[in-house]
Design a protein around this nucleic acid. Structure first.
Length: 402
RNA sequence: GGCGGGAUUCCCGAGCGGUCAAAGGGGCCUGACUGUAAAUCAGGUGGCUCAGCCUUCGAAGGUUCGAAUCCUUCUCCCGCCA
């Protein structure tokens, strides 16, 4: 059992939904919720300085156990004073357990797996060597050597990293597996949850005493399995609950899965929705009672030349690499007051930087995208506190600039 | 004026008698991207009445069953020598 049993301080709830707002109090500070958590997988929000991320309104970032274990190694990071000091971010950090990598190294992305296709030229398959009750063997993507992760090792690594929140080691259940496999996998994840908590209990006094541990709900797209998993995690000693695994083939199914889950979760435990992402998904997630989200989308899209804009019909995206923006003197995003847009830069300039492969272009777009999401979350928090979430959500979904 | 080298599909650039509508880049277009092996990846990129046909490899002739590839002349580039 960890110390902060009531780390989440809820100050307001929305009468028309499960949404709530408040603060999540952690070792390195508090997180205003609902919050989006930018990914700093390899100990950096790619392209941005810690101060820049904070200035955009972010209280927490997410690091990855798998990646930091492979390179540069958790011992090295621990020796240097922990992940916070290592990356120069003294605010909260949540670390993912590496469970997702077991999935992605075998299947590629979530979308690839669902659609049954190979991603990146089919180069990504087969790095996961085997999943057993003990843990997972896989081939390092860096040097090809065989590595092994187990619930205990994942917790040990996260303890060494010193993250504010550790996620238990799980198997991200694929979409294209049988219900029976999903059931067995989910049960194993439950056993792994217990092992993670036990490891944490045993080592907490001498180490991560106030590090929170979040259990992970699996169960695929099966209501009974999801509900059971949510109940198992909720009833455990875990401080918080993360919703993971395959969330379905489309948004409707995803919302349904999250709905089943949060419907049975106790109100006091913080809830994290793993890997979500899109503007509309964040809005719905908040309505379904999610407190924190993480997603590669805003930062990755920015690096890929896409700017987030208030246009639902284009899924809130505009790809500035297209030649039609070559002489577009308009702003990146009309009305946006982010550090990038404040410079008065044109789409023509961004397009030019992108085509010229200048790093500044990527920095500018990542900054804008993260600012966009940060404002979205801020507006949702404010709306919940003011009892106006329904109207605000409707406006944002219709294309209001957050 | 002389001697060499070169002109290839939007651009650069392979090809050097048939398996070439023509490698490979770039550009352009489309698509993807949701717990980041991702500043990435995939597909397309002469035309059509599209399992075939037509038009393309500076221009015009010629050799050959057959030419972007060989020959002749011409036009224009680029070196070197005068």
């Amino acid at each position: 059992m960890t110390v902060a049993a009531n780390a989440l301080d809820i100050v307001a709830t929305d009468p028309g939904s499960r949404a709530r707002t408040g603060t999540l109090n952690l070792i390195h500070g508090s997180v205003r919720t609902p919050a989006f958590v930018p990914l700093a997988t390899k100990a950096t929000v790619r392209g941005l300085l810690p101060a820049e991320v904070a200035a955009l309104g972010y209280d927490m970032v997410l690091g990855n156990t798998y990646h930091l274990f492979i390179d540069p190694g958790h011992e090295l990071i621990a020796g240097g004073g922990g992940l916070h000091r290592f990356m120069g971010w003294e605010r909260p950090i949540i670390t993912d357990s590496g469970g997702f990598q077991v999935f992605s190294m075998g299947h590629g992305t979530v979308a690839d797996e669902i659609k049954g296709r190979a991603s990146h030229g089919g180069q990504r398959h087969g790095k996961t060597l085997g999943i057993t009750e003990e843990g997972v063997s896989f081939r390092s993507h860096v040097d090809g050597s065989t590595k092994f992760l187990s619930p205990e090792i994942a917790m040990e690594i996260q303890a060494a990293l010193g993250s504010d929140i550790a996620l238990v080691f799980d198997e991200c259940t694929p979409f294209n597996v049988s219900r029976d496999y999903t059931a067995r996998s989910t049960e194993r994840t439950h056993r792994w949850l217990e092992r993670c908590l036990s490891w944490h209990d045993e080592h907490g006094a001498g180490g991560p005493a106030s590090q929170l541990v979040y259990g992970i709900v699996q169960g695929g797209v099966h209501e009974d399995l999801r509900v059971e998993s949510a109940e198992v995690v909720a009833a455990s000693r875990a401080d918080g609950v993360a919703v993971g695994g395959s969330l379905g083939a489309d948004k409707a199914q995803m919302y349904e899965v999250v709905d089943w889950t949060t419907a049975v979760l106790p109100g006091h435990k913080p809830r994290h929705l793993l890997g979500i992402g899109d503007i509309d998904d964040l809005i719905r997630g908040v309505e379904l009672g999610i407190d924190t989200f993480d997603c590669a989308m805003p930062t990755r899209l920015g690096r890929h030349g896409v700017a987030l804009v208030p246009e639902p019909e284009t899924r809130w995206r505009v790809d500035l690499t297209g030649a039609r923006f070559r002489d577009d003197q308009g702003p990146i995003c009309e009305g946006c007051a982010c550090p990038a847009c404040e410079l008065g830069l044109t789409r023509a300039y961004l397009h030019y930087l992108l085509k010229a492969r200048e790093l500044t272009g990527l920095r500018l777009l990542v900054t804008h995208n993260l600012a966009f999401i940060a404002r979205l979350m801020h507006r949702l928090r404010t709306a919940i506190a003011a009892g106006e979430l329904a109207a605000e959500a409707a406006a944002l979904r219709a294309g209001a600039l957050p």
